[in-house]
Design a protein around this nucleic acid. Sequence first.
DNA 1: AAGTGGTCTAGACCACCTC
DNA 2: AGGTGGTCTAGACCACTTA
Lengths: 257, 257
Amino acid sequence: MGTPQLAQQPEPKYWHLKTVLSAALDSEFSVGQALPNERALAARFGVARATLRQALDQLELEGRLQRRRGIGTTVAPPRVGVDVGPGALDGPGGPGDAWTTTGWAREPAPPAVAEALGLPRREPVEAVHRLLTSHGLPVATERLFVPAALLPERPGAAAPRPAASGEQRGLDLLGRLRAQGPDGQDRSVELGSAGAAEARRLDQLPGAPVLLVTTRYARAGRVLAVSLATYRADTCRLTFGGGDAPRAGEAAAVSVE
Amino acid sequence: MGTPQLAQQPEPKYWHLKTVLSAALDSEFSVGQALPNERALAARFGVARATLRQALDQLELEGRLQRRRGIGTTVAPPRVGVDVGPGALDGPGGPGDAWTTTGWAREPAPPAVAEALGLPRREPVEAVHRLLTSHGLPVATERLFVPAALLPERPGAAAPRPAASGEQRGLDLLGRLRAQGPDGQDRSVELGSAGAAEARRLDQLPGAPVLLVTTRYARAGRVLAVSLATYRADTCRLTFGGGDAPRAGEAAAVSVE
DNA sequence: AAGTGGTCTAGACCACCTC
DNA sequence: AGGTGGTCTAGACCACTTA
């Protein structure tokens, strides 16, 4: 008799569950539709609730589901493409777009930022806070670290009065940075998790997965500002170079196989 | 008497644990050092193992820890910066770099790829498989969908014989694509989870978080090829535009606060 | 054989939302 | 009040590695 099939190690239950649910989402559910609650689903599949949740966690990570406490689980819409091309300094007063300046603060620079700017670590520095919304929902927050000392005041513009709001101060700094006309940008993207403050601003739970985009604005080899942007990983797809980048299609591409 | 402090809802245990562990990693551990095992840690902090694991899961997601079954948990080195700039077609025979062509196959195009290439969905198409390693470890896999029909054979080069290996066929297709000199690229990045095949090639477990990079190569408005690349999210930081993009520093930037 | 992390269970309670 | 997802427990067994 031939060599018997190598005893295939059993697929984890949650993995199989995920596959089954994924197929069901494609064929039997439409965007926005609610799934049965977790206890019902677990019972239907004959597994513990924790095991079912492991499968749902994966599907949520892939952007296929949306879960809200007290509400339920629904089928998520396709991820929204967000351009992080060369125009990232856009905003009210700038060309383009939907970034909103929400405030201003002097706060200690994170180590990487301090290093890039050539400052002592944890040196207090001006930070402009911005929020990006898409279709009315928040998708990203940004802290733009921009040392005022590096930016001359704009001759034509009135400096904000001491009593000016954070928004006004932020807009002033942003304008001064734009006036410098940065000529170089470095960007990097990595996976992170939302802190308490970011989670609140992005309307999600602390610890939720986010895409961390670090951008360095330079002019003539001198780093003028560093931006730390936090994009919701569940709802966002970052696009570079052109607004019509391809969509990584339904299940097939998001869960790579 | 004044309004009493609003009863602060208790921080989840796993969240507090994560904070404590994170601080300990910074101050008392060095890269590569092993942590106590999960049962010991759970006992030390007086929580159930599942709760401890929730904290470790987060730290692993942020690239601070590395866990290997049967081995233990160690402090992860800083993420490696991987350039995904305009030179992504590099590889043996091309300028630059470390992509290795591992094979070739005719496989059905994922929906998004078929659409971008203007083909019927699930149409079989040539796919070149490549692997990117850094310091000897695999960090990314790629499937480059490149319909042979769109690419003329190179006059000077010998076409691979029918019996040629997958590698040879892949290299031939890659050469023909390079010879076309694509002049446009669209890229997008999103979060995904590794399928069984990718996980095997990347030496991680199925379901591990990955960064999905979709690139469209075009010439004169015509899409010639589409690449689906899968980067390990735990060990990689994607960099764009210049090889010396800033590092999102230690804890502070990866776990945004 | 012994030790590690990965999976799974059957409960419990909590925070949040709607009715 | 009743429903939802989020947290937590105290176990058990499994897969993998090393010795």
